[in-house]
Design a protein around this nucleic acid. Structure first.
Lengths: 165, 165
DNA sequence: AATTTATGTCAGTCTTGTTGACTTTCCAAG
DNA sequence: CTTGGAAAGTCAACAAGACTGACATAAATT
């Protein structure tokens, strides 16, 4: 994957500091836009981004344990517990005692939880779908490739891969 | 939603909800990794992400005004002021009364401010450079294309374009 | 002269993160 | 069977950084 092309900086051009700083800004603005839709929805609740994140990952990994969720979210258990407590008390999340190991709590979304997840997620899916569509398949591939390279290697395992059927 | 059954669906395949949700997670993990390096540096200071953001944009747009910065950062003036106050008091940022309009304050980094900016930025540039390098030029182009599509259109103007000279 | 704009500041609130201490539950190794 | 430790839950205190609202001042604009 090295320099298939000429001595010209053509394949190095994007590595100038200016180009890199531009990439940093792109990430900043894109990420902010990306969370603005859910944020607006959450204003109508007593929830914030922390709740959104919990809901997202419980939706994606039904039955996951608190510990696994802590690992993914990278916060303290006290912080996550406050969020989970509210969601459980409000009937959006269900916490089931583990069968094999009764210390563990397995988390699921209730129908109400799924409804909120769907609301939050649909705005982001819509935005991303439009962005993907306009950029085209090759761009999407590059987008995902670069993002995967950016993240901490230890986190790559947490990106839920698609099921092959 | 049954795109996959269509012939030539290969340019629609990435629009399934699962693929979109995966994209959401990629963005989440990548963004978190991306800000983790500066965060670690800032632990040694009394500064946080808010200061980092201010420093970044003052660096990129020397002489920018408080109002312009508010627009870019999307926070309230009270919030930005607290951050700027500290940076100015600590001698990292200089605030100059405008010449044409003496109500405006034009912001610049002092040498000390530039030093911190360089520290913070270099970790991110390094991470991004490695990610770009591994993915290749085409992927980088796609990455930037998709990010630009994701952000709010009104924000695109704020991504500082490269100077041609 | 009146109004608007740019900036600064004070006070109070909220979310979400932190640390530290402690308890309960319960699996598994001695 | 006992006990050590892991998983989870809880309480309290605190901090960063966002918010709103009110108010002040200086300077430009109308």
């Amino acid at each position: 994957m090295q320099d298939r092309l000429q001595p010209g900086g053509e394949n190095l051009l994007f590595l100038t500091d200016d180009q890199l700083l531009q990439g940093i800004e792109l990430l900043f603005f894109a990420y902010r836009g990306f969370i603005s839709d859910p944020d607006r929805i959450l204003e109508n609740y007593t929830y914030g981004r922390a709740h959104h994140r919990a809901i997202h990952f419980i939706h994606r990994r039904p039955g996951t344990t608190v510990n696994a969720l802590l690992d993914i979210l990278g916060v303290t258990k006290q912080s996550l517990n406050r969020v989970l407590r509210q969601l459980i008390d409000d009937g959006l999340v269900e916490s089931k005692v583990g069968v094999r190991d009764r210390r563990e709590r397995h988390l699921h979304l209730t129908p109400a939880g799924q409804a909120l997840e769907s609301d939050l997620s649909s705005t982001q899916r819509k935005r991303l779908r439009a962005a993907y569509k306009e950029a085209g398949p090759d761009a999407v591939h590059g987008f995902r490739q670069v993002l995967e390279n950016i993240m901490d290697p230890s986190m790559r395992q947490h990106v839920k891969k698609l099921v092959k059927d």
